[in-house]
Write a protein that binds this DNA or RNA. Structure first.
Lengths: 190, 190
DNA sequence: ACCTGAACACCGTTCAAGT
DNA sequence: ACCTGAACACCGTTCAAGT
């Protein structure tokens, strides 16, 4: 596409440009449309050119996923730690549901990206303020993350997002809040 | 493979034979190895021959997934409903972890198969014995299923199952039991 | 180092034809 | 109805070559 190039001519690509285009592609056409070839097409480049900026499709997807987490709102310092934990997970839930077709991709993988690590540190700090530290904190963290991603995946599951009147969605969100509260109760008490 | 056939000759396939072979393929080589072409190869048939017994790959995967749930142990009638609910979800968790590479496949989809429906009915019956009925029961059910599948996915996530000393696995299972108990407490109390 | 060109080894699915 | 044969429109990735 665009301007034809001969071998040796550069297209002015960068890792950032590739990732940005990938996110737009996912936003525009869904996660299934994210292929190395379609992404290359969008960038006006041959598919194999992407490998100069990205290790492969797996790493690309990981970067796209972690990029989403940049939108998660971190609660301001101070205030009740339990409220803060709840708010943090609720924001994560909202961000995930803002990108329904990406959520399934989240489940099979860990989240080793920088945003995931940053949010993980915030969570541990909050738990620490509640006296939950060490192995217990890591365990609590796992439970909360699994619940949140799992619930988002449930709420965003195929054939569900299309027909969701506000009432249904609100009830689902309410369920999430209740389940989350139960877990935090358990973490605080146990 | 096997005996070459000319057009018009039948291979003696059936939907059951296709599904059985698919399950064996997944068990032997993992869920990534489940392709229409490799499955056809295993059955000594051309890829398109499968479409006489299966609507497509999506339906095939759904059937394979639901088939796994046949192994879930349904707790005997009588006894505490909370204990029974816990046992039901714990058995589901165990069955899922017995097939780690299938779990990620579970998350993106609903579970509309017959085994899923049967287990769902059992769950609702148990919740009903606890006085949890109607919309609350459906909500409780969602929370429990999401938590269980989500946790199994977490425990079985790639690069995790390989290096799991018994102690680590036992601690993870303990986390599942605790989180599950918290949720059931919440359901019973709310 | 970054790209083109060409190829390899795959996919799921469809269509036409045979019996 | 159930299969072969052949094809279509895709994939991710690698290797060699140009500048």
């Amino acid at each position: 596409m665009t301007i034809p190039r001969t071998p040796g001519q550069r297209a002015g690509l960068s890792r950032q440009a590739v990732l940005t285009a990938a996110r737009q592609l996912v936003a525009d056409e869904g996660v299934d449309a994210l292929t190395m070839r379609s992404l290359a097409d969008r960038l006006g480049v041959h598919p194999n050119a992407l490998y100069s900026h990205v290790a492969g499709k797996a790493e690309l997807e990981e970067a796209v996923l972690d990029g989403l987490l940049a939108d998660v709102r971190v609660p301001a310092g101070g205030g009740d730690w339990r409220t803060a934990v709840h708010a943090l997970m609720r924001s994560t839930y909202d961000v995930l549901l803002a990108h329904p077709d990406v959520v399934p991709l989240y489940l099979g993988r860990g989240s080793r990206g920088e945003n995931a690590q940053r949010l993980g540190a915030v969570m541990l700090e909050l738990l620490g303020r509640g006296g939950v530290t060490g192995p217990s904190a890591v365990e609590a963290q796992s439970v909360l993350i699994v619940f949140t991603i799992g619930f988002a995946a449930f709420a965003a599951r195929p054939g569900f997002e299309h027909q969701q009147p506000d009432a249904r969605r609100a009830r689902l969100d309410g369920n999430f809040d209740r389940g989350l509260a139960w877990l935090i109760d358990g973490i605080a008490g146990g």
